[in-house]
């Protein structure tokens, strides 16, 4: 445990010195602002389109509600998440390439400690970033529209967090196999693509991890939290399997 703590501190230093934390923070903050801003500006944009009177179309703007802003919340989340995955895709592989893990392992630091410290850091960054993102959107939404009509908000938020955690654990799993950052990205992308592909089958769609990103149905009250049970169980099992699978594969990884 103490050894893992030491390695974790090294990871922390890297996070701060390479300005990774700053980039992730600014990204989540900006995309957090973007959601409510888009919702707020939509009527203005539609009005401008209507004024042009070139098309001859009459466009009537519907009133923007808090739901429009929450739609943006789930839509915009993709980009900061992809950026985190890209940034961390080389967290392990750069160290393999430069051979910087070899001295640590020969001095007695176990591979499990290395893996655990790196994964802990990744999950921490994702969780804190997501919390901040949610905080920003929640703040603006209650300021502009009020969050009263939103159902099961915290369940929806939690489900989406689990989906992100699943993606992060995939980064760990593929980092224990792959040789380069591109391979890690390819692996995570392939799993995501597979989920989307299988999701075309209507019977399977509500059992996949991608189901968890559909927080809007919960917030609108179309679905109840119970509808997500199977998806949550499957995602949790897959997340744990990927995490422990990565730890096991890490033992045999050529450093």
């Amino acid at each position: 445990m103490r050894r893992m703590g030491a390695f974790f501190r090294k990871e922390m230093m890297e996070l701060l010195r390479r300005k990774k934390l700053m980039i992730v923070g600014i990204l989540f903050l900006l995309f957090g602002i973007l959601g409510p801003a888009t919702a707020k500006l939509t009527p203005e944009i539609i009005k401008m389109l209507g004024d042009s009177s070139v098309s001859g179309l009459t466009i009537t703007a519907e009133d923007v509600t808090v739901m429009d802003s929450w739609i943006q919340f789930f839509k915009n989340l993709d980009i900061p998440m992809i950026v985190i995955i890209i940034m961390w895709s080389s967290a392990f592989t750069t160290e393999y390439r430069q051979g910087t893990l070899i001295p640590l392992v020969t001095k007695g630091l176990s591979r499990t400690d290395i893996y655990a410290a790196k994964m802990l850091m990744l999950h921490l960054v994702w969780t804190l970033g997501y919390l901040m993102y949610f905080g920003v959107v929640y703040g603006y939404n209650s300021y502009y529209w009020g969050n009263d009509g939103v159902k099961h908000m915290f369940v929806a938020i939690l489900l989406n967090w689990l989906y992100g955690a699943f993606m992060m654990s995939l980064v760990g799993l593929f980092s224990a196999i792959a040789e380069s950052g591109a391979q890690v990205m390819l692996g995570v992308g392939a799993v995501w693509f597979l989920c989307t592909l299988v999701g075309i089958v209507p019977k399977l769609a509500d059992k996949l991890p991608t189901m968890l990103t559909d927080g809007m149905s919960l917030m609108r009250g179309v679905k109840s939290p119970g509808d997500y049970t199977i998806a949550v169980v499957i995602t949790a099992v897959l997340t744990l399997a990927a995490t422990f699978g990565g730890a096991v594969l890490m033992q045999r990884k050529k450093l």
């Binding site: 600014i26 903050l29 602002i33 801003a37 707020k40 300021y143």
Partner: peptide, 17 residues
């Protein structure tokens, strides 16, 4: 004025960067 709460943080981040 209505948009100020959205604009201020964007401007602040811009100048920090």
């Amino acid at each position: 004025k209505d948009y100020l709460p959205l604009l201020i943080p964007i401007v602040v981040i811009q100048f920090i960067l």
